[in-house]
Design a binder for these strands. Structure first.
Lengths: 343, 343
DNA sequence: ATGATAATTGGAAACGTTTACGGTAACGTT
DNA sequence: AACGTTACCGTAAACGTTTCCAATTATCAT
């Protein structure tokens, strides 16, 4: 493998100039730049990362933190993020962490001495970012949750408009004639509008409740809401609990597809059918919703765009320093086969 | 952050000796070792990776290569691998690549100058390892495919006994009285026993066919087999094709759960029911098989053990040089609700 | 006690970069 | 022609390790 010295020798310039070309800094003549670039190209030279890192005390890779349960939607985004990074010639370190706080702190610690040049968060909420990651102070992006107005000055966010989507789901159900609707999934505190939270689940739920109230439909958090983690087994259990507790329901809004899939089976096991006895809507738009029986109505998040915009923004801010941005990516409502009017 | 120099100064020894202690090499007195270790401990000193890497021209991290479509089973393993690595205090670089050959070659190239100290492959087959990765020549493990007897001298493998499992599935179907059984999924060449291949799909299929023939049941590759990638949409299409072509089938063996889930829906769309009209068995044991309607019969691979043994073997071989091993991890047959006797 | 040998330790070079600094050349201004 | 300014470029130090080699000390047999 050629070194910067070899390139310098072969191009007839000094290593200083070569270095300037590599990092495209100014102060090097057009002729020098061309010559050096040519040599670099024909030698297939790649700067040695370790040396660079040693000198600058920052690594040249990006760390991706995936937060939450083994979730198909996050995996989809992860893969797209990874692909996009590779298209730009970047490679990524990936870390999976669970929701709990000490794990977040530990991860932040571990990542700190990995010295990444940038951070990408998948899943979770911006709150976690405050749990140690803000100290690392490198350009970061949060995909799948919003971070606007939270005072993190190095964190962009790209997300679906969860509040609007949650409201949209409810509007749809109500327009089908549903009046007894329950919500499934998320954290116990999510229904409590007085608590501040920027997590997507919370926003979906609050948007939904707000819409219901705007339609003059009462929503009792104790009776009509059941919290649970975003996984299929948890969705199954939660659905059973709420259906046993509140048998007069005609529709269910699961704030994640994994939960909805579990609920689908729970409903089946209780001898009810979807959508005749009960309508159900999910959230995320994972592939399985298009093949389940019945096909699941859901909010399809645009994973490809989320990933792409997130990565592009990070790389952009990595090279030209710009302020972070907060963007909402359009979503799509998928009708599926799991909604009908109550009978 | 303290450096080795600080430790040297504070302990009263030279950096050479400190280095020897850190890498616990021999040739340092017990007293020196103790003193130095004490200082290291109280300073919370961590060697600088970049410097180390620069000097030794090998990085300190492990690269994980995930091969194949966006597959839930692989994601599950990936997460478990990652967790196990973290338990050992290691971090991993993750790369997703598709099946095609140039992508493999490109990835091998890219990884070569990442200079990982070890490699973990998830999915695909050992064949891919030959496409450039063997040149990197670091301890590697292949999880989810076998590599025994292929002449790679630095590659361990941990896998389900795909051939036996494939045979087991067929034995089960035959014992239920099925005689007209089709196989779904994998590459077109997989049925051709004359071609050599170590891919898991191939082995499952060959094991299945072998078992059928041993039971005196004829299997016509053209009529009873339909190749397709390991994804749900592809499974859907493949199932439609084969059911239209061969309507007298009574059972289907999909060599991956994703394929089976697609097939389930295809069967439904054709107005048939599982298992009354058609039995179906999948492979992998992903979570969704336990919640689909009907629950899918499948071969449950032991993802946790596969991941754990793979990681442990790699780390072991990284520190003590041992020969690679090839291990088959037990699987479990899950009865599900998708098998019945033909009527 | 002496020398020979082994064990331990220190010193310094090297890994491949980046960057501050100083030097040189080119150019325009007077 | 002399000078100042600018643009470009080269030199060398520094980043924190590992490791070779030489130096020192300890151990032992005689």
């Amino acid at each position: 493998m050629a070194t910067i010295q070899d390139i310098a020798r072969m191009s007839g310039y000094s290593i200083g100039t070569v270095s300037r070309v590599i990092n495209n800094r100014q102060g090097v003549s057009e002729s020098a730049r061309e010559k050096i670039e040519e040599v670099i190209r024909e030698q297939g030279y790649q700067p040695n990362n370790s040396a660079r890192m040693l000198r600058q005390s920052i690594s040249s890779d990006i760390t991706v933190i995936v937060r939450g349960a083994n979730n198909h939607f996050l995996h989809t985004i992860l893969e797209k993020v990874q692909n996009r990074l590779r298209e730009h010639g970047e490679s990524a370190n990936v870390l999976f962490i669970r929701e709990n706080e000490d794990e977040v702190a530990a991860a932040a610690q571990a990542i700190q001495n990995l010295k990444p040049k940038g951070l990408i968060f998948l899943g979770g909420s911006a709150d976690a970012f405050g749990g140690g990651f803000d100290k690392i102070n490198v350009p970061s992006v949060l995909i799948t949750a919003g971070a606007e107005g939270l005072g993190f000055d190095n964190l962009s966010s790209f997300t679906t408009d969860d509040r609007a989507a949650g409201a949209f789901v409810m509007r749809t159900l109500v327009s089908h004639g549903h009046r007894r609707i329950a919500i499934l999934g998320g954290y116990p505190g999510d229904v409590d509008a007085s608590k501040h939270s920027s997590s997507p689940g919370t926003l979906r739920i609050r948007g939904a409740i707000q819409e219901l109230e705007a339609s003059g439909i009462s929503f009792d958090p104790v009776r009509d809401y059941e919290a649970c983690p975003f996984s299929t087994p948890d969705g199954y259990e939660a659905a059973r609990r709420i259906l046993e507790r509140t048998p007069d329901l005609t529709a269910l809004f699961a704030v994640g597809d994994a939960v909805a899939i579990g609920a689908l089976r729970a409903i089946y096991d209780m001898g009810l059918t979807v959508p005749d006895d009960l309508s159900i809507v999910g959230f995320d738009g994972v592939i399985i919703t298009k093949y389940s029986i019945p096909r699941l109505a859901t909010i399809q998040q645009d994973a490809a765009t989320l990933a792409q915009r997130g990565v592009d923004d990070l790389l952009m801010r990595l090279s030209y320093d710009r302020p972070p941005v907060h963007e909402k990516i359009p979503y799509l409502f998928i009708q599926g086969e799991s909604i009908a009017s109550p009978r």
